[in-house]
Design a binder for these strands. Structure first.
Length: 501
RNA sequence: GCGGGCAUAGUGUAGUCUGGUUAUCACAUAGGCUUGCCAAGCCUAUAACCCGGGUUCAAAUCCCGGUGCCCGCACCA
């Protein structure tokens, strides 16, 4: 589906909508409605089950969303988020000031005010790199972090975190003690991050307030054991950076063994790349042929990332492959920077007495993007029918309960709906319109099971206390005893379990 | 940020160029009758011109400003 068509459908069903709609909306802010909120929780829970559940030494924490200025100064976000830009008044192209001044001032523009940069441009006669005209503007700074006044005086500067990862780094020394004082140690955060994007675009794909699910694995750079033998035959759809620089974005299905061998990647990295890939393929159930693992070149990736693969899904609504998550080997950059910034030594002493500054492997997911991808890839029109083929364990509503004839069967059906809800299932009771229309609504919401109470349920005979269970994808119907119903649905609602590390 | 396009019920739309009726139609939603396992039928109801200003006897329609969305460029640490 096209982006507008898909968004209209999601809006109509109350999955999500623009925030502050009655005031005309606010750029880059969206709210989730009942279906979206429930779906998001399921996606996040599935992520936690898959990533945090992979090891006994991985933990989920819930830190605040506000960072003191010293933190973002140390992390590099303060300077990197405020790159000055100049615009060519002639051809209307924007450039980063340090790029434009590369030749005349190779040391960069850090520490210069915008008028000072403008003076250099004027004095050196710097021209527009694109059209060659003399029309470069005075630089403007885009602070991509939201700054806040903190405390009574408002003199203390704080920022909404631009990524959840920083919260995990700050927690590392405490988690070292809370955990088993052993590496690897995983610290996961699922929460909001905020970026004052210049141009929010494409609904959930570039928002100013969005959710990140990130697992930071702190490990000993000399030793990160993984059960690599178990996975070495598995093939991954990769696009290596070298191949991209040579002009091809074609996927090469490469075995884990080859990526680690001739491919030159560490085994621990390949293992986790595969673990992440499996989440998208086996948990979110994105078709393998619509997924690719795209390696970022040295120019594209952040300088501190030693290895960087994006996990991308091919989305019709957005015109191609788009990043949903990533696997980043960040080295010791983060703990080193925060060690310097805080004046604390963040290295740890391992059993045996060796002291190490742990390296970080970061596994990320953008839950908002995942939700859009779940809609793009699984929400399909089949003639008159619209079906959201979500995996049963991700569906916002587990089961719909319908009386075939409201007057005759409502009492029993309502009681059944209450019983299923009491068993911990999300239930939707619907008695309006024809049974076919109710099934159709259920299909559109992605509800995997519809339970219909009919005359046989109430009558004496072999079908007493049984109901029709209608399955969303096949439209097939089976007769199920009410006593077994909750257990059956619960089974389908279990998240896939990860292989343990 | 720059450039282009767009904005009408819950959703999709007609009407805008050429100002003038009770703002069109479909689907959806709610109620009734009927039916009773896949969006059936009939009747009824709810429901919209993005916001602000201007021109005019009269503005959904023309003009200005704002807001938001889409596309391209740039940006995405």
């Amino acid at each position: 589906m096209k982006i507008d068509e898909l968004f209209a459908l999601l809006r109509r069903r109350g999955v999500l909508w623009p925030s502050a709609e009655i005031y005309g909306g606010a750029q880059g802010l969206y709210d989730y409605g009942p279906l979206g909120a429930a779906l998001k929780r399921r996606v996040e829970d599935a992520w936690v089950a898959w990533f945090v559940g992979a090891s006994r030494d991985y933990y989920l924490i819930d830190p605040v969303e506000i960072l003191p200025e010293a933190v973002v100064r140390a992390s590099g976000h303060l300077e990197n988020f405020t790159d000055p830009e100049v615009t060519c008044e002639n051809c209307h192209t924007d450039f980063r000031a340090d790029t434009v001044l590369e030749k005349v001032r190779p040391e960069g523009v850090d520490g210069l005010t915008n008028p000072e940069i403008a003076e250099i441009i004027r004095a050196k006669g710097v021209k527009c790199p694109k059209c060659g005209s003399n029309a470069l503007s005075v630089p403007k700074s885009f602070n991509l972090m939201f700054g806040l006044d903190f405390g009574v005086t408002g003199h203390d500067r704080v920022y909404l975190r631009p990524e959840t990862a920083q919260s995990s780094y700050l927690a590392f020394p405490r988690m070292w003690d809370v955990g088993r004082r052993a590496l690897p140690l995983g610290v996961a955060v699922v929460g909001k991050a905020y970026r004052n994007e210049i141009a929010p675009r494409q609904i959930l794909f570039r928002m100013r307030s969005f959710t990140q699910a990130e697992l930071q694995i702190f490990f000993d750079p000399e030793r990160f054991p993984v059960p690599f033998d178990r996975v070495k035959e598995e093939k991954l759809p990769v696009v290596r950076a070298a191949r991209r620089l040579a002009g091809s974005e074609e996927v090469e299905w490469t075995s884990a063994a080859d990526l680690a061998g001739a491919g030159g990647l560490p085994e621990f990295y390949v293992y986790h790349l595969l673990h992440s890939y499996r989440f998208y393929r086996d948990v979110l159930r994105f078709p393998a042929e619509q997924l690719r693992l795209l390696e970022k070149s040295e120019q594209e990736r952040a300088f501190y990332n030693r290895i960087h693969f994006d996990i991308e899904a091919n989305l019709e609504s957005l015109g191609g492959f788009r990043e949903i998550g990533g696997v980043h080997y960040r080295g010791d950059y983060d703990l080193s920077r925060h060690g310097t910034g805080s004046g604390r030594d963040l290295s740890v002493t391992l059993t045996g007495g060796r002291s190490v500054l742990p390296h970080v492997l970061e596994l990320t997911l953008g839950p908002d993007r995942a939700i859009w991808a779940l809609a793009d890839l699984h929400l399909v029109r089949e003639g008159e029918r619209t079906v959201w083929r979500l995996p049963a364990y991700l569906a916002p509503i587990a089961v719909g309960v319908f009386p075939l004839i409201e007057k005759a069967h409502a009492e029993y059906a309502l009681r059944l709906a209450d019983d299923l809800a009491a068993a911990g299932l999300s239930v939707q009771y619907d008695a309006t319109s024809s049974i076919g229309r109710r099934y159709a609504r259920m299909d559109e919401a992605g509800t995997p099971f519809g339970v219909t109470v009919d005359g046989d349920t109430l009558a004496d005979g072999p079908a007493h206390d049984t109901v029709t269970v209608r399955e969303r994808d096949s439209k097939g119907q089976t007769r199920v005893a009410v006593a077994e119903l909750a257990a059956r649905i619960e089974l389908a609602r279990r998240f896939p379990r990860p292989p343990s590390i």
